[in-house]
Write a protein that binds this DNA or RNA. Structure first.
Lengths: 248, 248
DNA sequence: CGTCCCAATATGTATATACATAATCGCCAT
DNA sequence: ATGGCGATTATGTATATACATATTGGGACG
């Protein structure tokens, strides 16, 4: 019920009061000592316990509320929330980084480059409502001499006109776009797929072998920028996502 | 360079000053008006612009810094950060929810239940260092009459003793565990795999058909709790992850 | 007995203020 | 030139205070 007797603990790191309140309460919740639904002490009680001002307590509680660990209700108090949907953070690195992390030399090679007016399929991929110029690219990321991932990309030239001038022979379009276009939103779709003949050929795997497909659509201030599909042979790649409720 | 002339804008919602500062600056960054590396106005300039106290500005900037949009350097000012690694939030819902979202009746059925001392493989899956009792479960999630996902689960009975008493005949272990065990950390691995004979049989798909595999390891206060592997037929499932830099 | 309204209460937001801390600039002495 | 040192500056953290706002509980009154 009450907070732990941390008053005499000395061995820890140097934490600001703010951070100490945060981690104290988080620990109570994550350890289960304060179950979902439990009412945590009122601000004025914490103020007394930590011998600090209400502002400091308030900031810490507001942060916990924003992180989704607690819910605050006026006149009633603050309550531990039910564990919500399992949300995990998926870090999608640049492929060069991934390959180099394996200790293998990285190389990108363009397979195809086509400038055209957007087809209906292109518009569906990009989420465009009207026709316009697009750049369709296909390229291979190599780890050493082995194909690592096949990239199929569509760039909306109305949003990124400069891309029309770029050949992308050895420069992968991903890193090129980052830094040039401030992207404000992205959507990822992850699925498994059997390699068709063309893909199997390009990746040098058996036809109908399983592949991991990661598709990403990117917007910049409401405008669709690019759609990209990465196709990895199943054995070459695993995505790792980690969830930690600590974010303060 | 300067902030937009929002002084005469009236049509917007009712926002607190704090939120208005946040969204103003976020908009500048996401629209690209303030490129990465750009120094945003000093706190005292924003104080003057919004005609408010430094504390209010400071809180907003601190929040942007925590969200990763800006970087703050003492004596130098605050700067727009380079877009970092593509981090996406992956929501992993309960399978019942997923199935019901498709408008199909949901059903869980236990296939196997085995209590044993942990084998070396079990310990590897759970991340345990020493031997102890575990519960191995296998079950099927159905969407209507079609198999939707195969679940292979391992529960560390040293961490969740009560699980030993539970039959899990129609109750899926996932929902059962949530609420009983406060989990503090989870790691997910996502990959593609070809169905072997057993799996293909269980899921009623062709042998060596591609599957999406989602593995999750869960800890509660440093103790491994459970390891679960969900195997989805490729055509039945796509994971969707969304990234928005806005989180204020 | 039910309904309306007010007072009490907990959180929400903002201010002015103070001092700490880290980094940089420029001056000065070598 | 150059190396060090102190003043300046911007952010970091905390306090006391004030008023706003939402919600609950209880009392007055029909």
């Amino acid at each position: 019920m009450s907070l732990s007797e941390t008053d005499d603990i000395e061995g820890g790191e140097i934490l600001s009061l703010h951070q100490r309140i945060l981690s104290d309460i988080r620990e109570k919740i994550l350890s289960g000592a304060w179950a979902p639904g439990h009412r945590i002490p009122f601000e004025h009680e914490l103020t007394a316990h930590y011998n600090c001002s209400r502002m400091t307590v308030n900031k810490a509680l507001s942060q916990l509320a924003k992180a989704g660990l607690i819910e605050r209700r006026r006149r009633s108090g603050s309550f531990v929330r039910q564990p919500q949907s399992q949300a995990a953070v998926l870090e999608l690195h640049d492929i060069r980084i991934e390959v180099e992390a394996l200790g293998l030399p990285y190389r990108y090679e363009r397979l195809e480059r086509l400038k055209r007016r957007s087809s209906a399929e292109d518009r569906a991929r990009l989420g465009l409502s009207q026709s316009g110029p697009v750049l369709a690219l296909e390229g291979m990321h190599f780890a050493g001499e082995r194909p690592f991932a096949l990239e199929q990309r569509l760039i909306n030239l109305s949003a990124v006109a400069e891309a029309a001038e770029e050949e992308f022979l050895q420069i992968a379009p991903g890193p090129w776009l980052i830094g040039r276009v401030p992207w404000s939103e992205a959507e990822h779709r992850i699925r498994a797929m059997a390699a068709d003949e063309t893909i199997a050929d390009a990746l040098d795997i058996d036809a109908s072998a399983p592949c991991l497909v990661v598709e990403r659509r990117t917007w910049s201030a409401e405008h669709p920028v690019t759609h990209v599909r990465f196709i990895y042979p199943a054995e070459s790649h695993t995505l790792v996502a980690r969830f930690t409720p600590s974010q303060g």
